[in-house]
Amino acid sequence: MPILHAMQETFGYVPQDAVPLIADAMNLSRAEVHGTFTFYHDFRHEPAGRHIVKVCVAEACQAAGARVTTDKIAKALDCAYGETRPDGQVTLEPIYCLGLCACGPSAMVNGRLVGLIDDEAIDEIAAEVRS
């Protein structure tokens, strides 16, 4: 796992070519490495967009109005959840809980945490993604 994390940190995703190399170095089968790689939501199979927006969709944020907020964000960014916009500008992902449950709805924008998301915050996120 630390190797896969390091790969993703360096390349932004885990290239398929890396699987046999890791298997070789760890004395594991390719199937075992592939299994681990594909089990976890975090590891990307392809490069992400220039900006990464992760929006919390779990219950506490839902209670705070996230069902509406998540739709608004998708519309503002013109991107569906789990996808990268065709121009490669942004990747939008759902995330299950950032631990900001008393200040929801919340999101992580390029690694920066945002709580109490309102329309103004959505505009700011959209502006950041345009840059």
């Binding site: 796992m1 896969l4 975090d42 995330i95």
Partner: peptide, 25 residues
Amino acid sequence: VRVGAGAYVCGEETSLLESLEGRRG
């Protein structure tokens, strides 16, 4: 410190141990 990778089920103790050992959780 070992870092997970976004799998909720790894909060279950035996799944967590599998993950710590570098396998599917």
